[in-house]
Design a protein around this nucleic acid. Sequence first.
DNA 1: TTGCTCCTCACGTCACGTGAGGTGGC
DNA 2: TTGCTCCTCACGTCACGTGAGGTGGC
Lengths: 147, 147
Amino acid sequence: MSAVEERLRIGEVARRLGVTTRTIRYYEEIGLLGSPGGEREAGRHRTYGDAEVERLRDALRLKSLLGLSLEELGELLEAEDARAARRDEWQHADPDPARRRVILDEARVYVERQLELVRRRREEIDSLESELIERRERIDACLDELA
Amino acid sequence: MSAVEERLRIGEVARRLGVTTRTIRYYEEIGLLGSPGGEREAGRHRTYGDAEVERLRDALRLKSLLGLSLEELGELLEAEDARAARRDEWQHADPDPARRRVILDEARVYVERQLELVRRRREEIDSLESELIERRERIDACLDELA
DNA sequence: TTGCTCCTCACGTCACGTGAGGTGGC
DNA sequence: TTGCTCCTCACGTCACGTGAGGTGGC
């Protein structure tokens, strides 16, 4: 299909995602990422493919925007991986409609759960933004009065 | 004007704000809050008035929603305090229009700075939400096709 | 007086930061 | 071969968590 996938080393991945290499190694250390590029002999360089980089990008975004602990993040990622596993199963075989329906329903529940978290956060942000805008308008009204 | 202000103890403040007492003590320890209720003899209970509770609520909200370190939060709060000081000056005296204009301009800059941070975050959240909604729609489309 | 909450150490933990000292691939 | 990045300890730090042991106010 595509050319041989270019694999990145940890420094380049860190640079692209805006974190340090230590962060990535720590996540691997606590089992959040699996081991990059399959098994690796001790001392050898870690390498990352596009899918691994994207997964890490998603993870960092969820953590930052939702303010999750790494344990909570881990739970979300497990669900995400289960979903990915289902999708593989989906593509490779099993055209049984009933089975397909189950897979889709599970994926939907997962997405819906994330949406719920994101939506709650957005509402908090929205209300903070409204308050600040209101404050600014009061200041502007005072300024108008002075003029 | 109003009745004697009711002052709260640290446990009640923590309960209302959804944090632990340790968090509040720690913020005081690193000088983020000033000392509650003015000076306090060692060993005596801390007490908090409405203004102090509200200030802490604002601080926790900013930190949580913007993902700030306590050092960054401290900088925002200093600006906020400068603003409060100006407002006192405003109310108590100094009806000089030029001076008033300066005070208002400073307040506006401060609010604008916070708005900028909040807006950036909201945009990130919005784009995450859009992606999730799109994912859900794709799942729904598949489900429709199955039916 | 009895609980309950408060107080101050002080050590533990989570999520990394920051070198030290050494090895590996373009 | 020379840099540059990578590797693995391992201790430090930030933002609290979690008791231990004791005191204070309704």
